[in-house]
Design a protein around this nucleic acid. Structure first.
Lengths: 342, 342
DNA sequence: TATTAACACGAAACCGTTTTCGTTGTTAGT
DNA sequence: ACTAACAACGAAAACGGTTTCGTGTTAATA
């Protein structure tokens, strides 16, 4: 790669000192108009741009933020990422993206890699494995170093830091209530294994809604699928052996798959059975029938996370203001489509 | 943020010079075993990690690669990104992700921002606006500086650099041929506006296949939709006014939307009409009926792009080897599902 | 005329590394 | 006893900037 022009080059060429060049370019009043003009002209001519790395070293801040997400080929995370990138970009920050691939080890490695100067702060959602092991020492180390951290969606109570989450409990409660109001009695829940923070909270909302409306909690109506399930046999028998008239799913993929098997088993949607799924992605809009879903507003969540992080980063520069941590809650909204009756 | 421990700190504490510490940690034979042990023990105790920024400045390489994609909430780009991240990570590189949002200006700004030392090379796909304006001076500047660049999917002939693309023409040709072999006569094409490089190539494949099989090219059978179209009226009339028995779509969203309107107009898939779409994403697998599609192997493409870029970066370090540029072609594969007849 | 303030600029430290090139003190060789 | 070789370490330059603190010159003031 060709060497780019530096202050030193300009100084040598114009026979002034490096300091003079630096000051001239920053319009310091120490420098005479003449020299300023000369320097600026020369700099423009050779399209001088300060070296970001040198700046980072000097200022001890990189204007980079690290984002670690479990999966990138995933609608929700993708929209969050978009929000982060949008906000960060507007504030002059770059985003370094790492994918943990739901793996604990990758998460740890990536964090350590980035923590040594590459970034000014982290935004992340815990990997599945991390949640399963419930081991968050790597996060503790980061926060102990005083590195700003914002957790979103897949959070943990073990770490004290800024967080942004969905109102999972209430959203789930509301969705089930709506199904009940529509006259549904045997409402199923299709969820992941329970170590997922959010799934658990959604399940709680489901339980509470049933209870508040005097519906019995029937364990047979709860189907727990592995996170990345491919085979449909479990859900086949699920629909065959239970007289289900409504289903809440913790994500849209589960929902659409379930709709397909329900249809295959002769059920009509929404006449015989209603469906609601979390994540209002492209699938919800284009499934047959279209799926009533709970929009998680990922972009909003991402923007919020980025905002919180950058505020913390830039506050750190100031004197020792009292540290405070917030948890922001994004409210899901129910988007009604064909899979439920209005 | 707390200051992290530096070589200088260790040197002061152990009463040796900075150089000694540095050498000891790198196991230099210049240093006695005693001092090495002492230094290493101390470093481990205080978990010393070299400052990446200082290293980058010194070595004039950042181990970062910049990725600029038009859209992140988009299955194909997302899979490519995943491939890039996977490969880069394995090689010890970080990925700085920027989203151009299909905007020329954002693309330019982001590139300039990153080009000043933050990264060792670029991987990108052109934004829609850039393709429309056909202005790639910002890319020229980058390559003129000797910064390695790999273009994927949305490429341009104006820039000489490494590229990785799909065999769009052949894939399209093959898909249409398959439809013809199945006895289809009135085959439509649903595509974007023509300034998209790939759409154009796919259209060419479509033309050629028709011609080779003595089917007349009927302009009425070609529907050009805006890239992000929301309203279906155009495609409504399209299906009403033409007796179409097969459709090739340049992406799966177009395809699934088209299937829905076709079904709404009483057409049976695949009996009355067949569908094939590019992009083998989640939609293709979960649409009703499931969609026969051309897998673009985004992850493979991403890995390839990352491989090419990193090879170039690391070759740059060596002496002036003769510069050569490659264009790698990824072959699409047809995944047959319910929307076509076997 | 001597003092002083303003002006315009340069030297040097600093950020945290790596690396080259001394500089010691010891040991071996003649 | 003198030199050569070697082992073990330190000084300093370099990467490319910013910033503090002089310093020399000129013009205004007492």
């Amino acid at each position: 790669m060709k060497r780019k022009i530096t202050l030193k080059d300009i100084a040598r060429e114009l026979d002034v000192s490096i300091s003079t060049v630096s000051k001239a370019l920053k319009n310091s009043r120490e420098i005479s108009k003449d020299t300023k003009d000369k320097v600026k002209a020369f700099a423009k001519l050779y399209s001088y741009k300060p070296n970001i790395i040198a700046l980072s070293l000097k200022q001890r801040r990189t204007k980079n933020i690290g984002v670690i997400i479990p999966d990138i080929v995933h609608h929700f995370f993708t929209t969050v990422f978009r929000g982060i990138e949008l906000y960060a970009d507007a504030k002059g920050y770059n985003v370094i993206a790492c994918v943990s691939d739901e793996s604990f080890d990758k998460e740890v490695i990536n964090m350590e890699l980035l923590a040594n100067g590459s970034i000014d702060g982290f935004i992340m959602a815990l990997s599945a494995e991390t949640q399963l092991k419930n081991d968050v020492n790597h996060l503790k180390e980061i926060t102990n170093q005083g590195m700003p951290l914002v957790l979103f969606d897949r959070i943990t109570d073990e770490i004290i830091c800024d967080k942004v989450i969905l109102n999972d409990f209430e959203a789930s409660y509301g969705a089930v209530k709506k199904l009940i109001d529509n006259g549904r009695k045997r409402i199923a829940l299709i969820t992941t294994e329970s170590y997922f923070n959010v799934s658990e909270k959604r399940a709680q909302g489901y339980y509470k809604a049933l209870k508040d409306h005097d519906l019995e909690l029937d364990e047979d109506l709860i189907l727990r699928l592995p996170y990345q399930f491919e085979n449909e046999t479990k859900s086949e028998t699920f629909f065959k052996s239970n007289k289900i008239d409504a289903v809440l799913c913790v994500n849209e993929i589960f929902a659409v798959r379930a709709m397909k098997t329900a249809q295959k088993n002769g059920l009509k949607i929404p006449e015989d059975i209603s469906f609601i799924g979390f994540t209002d992605g492209i699938l919800s809009k284009l499934a047959t029938p279209t799926l009533t879903s709970l929009a998680q507003h990922g972009e909003k969540m991402g923007k919020m996370a980025a905002k919180m992080l950058i505020e913390k980063i830039e506050r750190d520069d100031d004197a020792a203001v009292e540290e405070t941590f917030r948890t922001e809650i994004i409210e899901a909204t129910l988007i009604e489509r064909e899979s439920t009756i209005n």
